[in-house]
């Protein structure tokens, strides 16, 4: 299991479009990927649930990854957050 924390920098937070891209990225991997904020967790492959977290600019999310391809998923997700959020 690997995890990282990330502070959202996009002014709009994880709004519809980046949420959509996030889901596409998460679905590339076999590993189970969860997003957590303030003790609430959702699977990163579920669009409506991710949008439902209403993650805003400046908030910290924790991304937890576990599975066979967790190393690749960790690098991929980290790069995705840095480039898009």
């Amino acid at each position: 299991m690997k995890k990282f924390e990330y502070v959202i920098k996009d002014e709009l937070g994880i709004h519809a479009r980046p949420a959509g891209l996030l889901i596409k990225e998460a679905k590339k991997y076999e590993s189970k990927i969860t997003l957590s904020k303030d003790g609430k967790s959702v699977e990163a492959t579920k669009l409506i649930a991710v949008m439902g977290m209403a993650i805003k600019c400046g908030q910290t999310v924790e991304v937890e990854i576990s599975g066979n391809d967790e190393d690749a998923a960790f690098d991929g997700m980290k790069a995705f957050f840095e480039a898009n959020l």
Binding site: R17, A19, G20, K46, L47, A49
Partner: peptide, 12 residues
């Protein structure tokens, strides 16, 4: 595109 993804959403 988002609408298409919402329609695939497992929870929904």
């Amino acid at each position: 595109d988002i609408h298409q993804m919402m329609l695939e959403d497992e929870d929904y």
